[in-house]
Simulated assay, not measured.
Amino acid sequence: MCERLINSIKTMVRETFEGPPVPVKGSWFTNSEPNSGIFGVLEGMTCEQASMSVHGTTFAAQTDHIRYHMWGTNGILKNGKQPEMDWGKSWEIHSVDEQQWKRIQDGLRNEYFTLLESIDTIEWNEQLANEVLSSLAHSAYHLGSIRQMLKAV
């Protein structure tokens, strides 16, 4: 795959999770202030806040669902097939303690860094390109969901 396109994909994935680059020179699709990606939005959120139910789900469940989807994507990129997944289970988190909340966030960061590394090393084909782009779109969608949940509280 063209190096320019790979770099563009990585830029969009980074913006989804880290927000726009610092110093901020604008944004492709998130808010243009620093820390407007998933990690910045979650930064400083307590386990009590992460356990708040908004419109039938918690911030912890949203976050773990993003992690779970990326884990599946990373499995496909590494092994060429999707691991066995239970999508319903990814939404079952109703409350977390400090340790569980940290584990969810650390797991998300791990899957994010694994995805970024994979983007540079996979043998690109149409299926893998679709998988990476769907992971980007899925994560961006849930960033919007989390931001809307924050408005409700």
Rank of each mutant, 00 (worst) to 15 (best):
K81E: 15
I6A: 01
S145M: 06
G44E: 09
K10L: 04
E111D: 10
A137Q: 05
G80K: 12
G72N: 14
V96G: 00
G72I: 00
I9S: 00
E111M: 12
V24Q: 05
K89H: 10
S8F: 03
T57Y: 12
G56C: 06
A60C: 08
S36F: 02
F113C: 13
I38Q: 04
E111I: 05
F39D: 12
I6G: 01
T121E: 08
C2N: 05
V54T: 12
G44P: 04
I38A: 03
D97T: 11
G56E: 09
S139P: 00
S135H: 02
I146Q: 02
K102E: 06
S139C: 07
D64A: 05
L128G: 00
L115S: 01
K25E: 15
N110V: 03
E84S: 11
G26D: 14
P34H: 12
H94K: 10
A50F: 02
S95D: 02
T11Y: 11
G37T: 04
S36P: 09
Y141F: 13
A60W: 05
E33A: 11
H138N: 02
A140D: 03
T57H: 10
V22T: 07
E98M: 06
Q127T: 00
M1P: 07
G107I: 01
L133C: 04
K25Y: 14
M149P: 07
F17H: 09
G40A: 13
W91M: 13
E123I: 14
L42I: 10
K81N: 13
I76E: 14
G26L: 11
I76R: 08
W71H: 13
V132I: 07
E131T: 14
M12S: 03
N35Q: 14
I9N: 01
V22A: 05
I146G: 00
Q105V: 11
S53Y: 00
N74L: 12
W101P: 02
G56H: 04
